[in-house]
Amino acid sequence: MIWQIDFWLLVILIITALVALSVHDLLAAVAALAAYSFFVALLFSQMGAIDVAFVEATLGAGISGVLFIVALFLTRRRSED
């Protein structure tokens, strides 16, 4: 545990979460959510949970993004807020 790396990863996490909630283009929001999941995976491996980091990097940043984008193309890409 090196606390500087931990701290700055958490700050990046908060920034990507805010970006994912505030963009109007939903495709960009999903991309920001995938980046958020990947930084969470980095933080898990930094905390020593390698299995959880592996599962988060494959599920959260991989398949979850694909499912969101499929649902996005079948509905509407813009959002009002």
Partner: peptide, 15 residues
């Protein structure tokens, strides 16, 4: 207000 945005918020909460 968008339902997909609500889902993204749920993912962030969960993580």
């Amino acid at each position: 207000r968008n339902l997909l945005k609500k889902l993204i918020g749920m993912n962030i909460f969960q993580t």
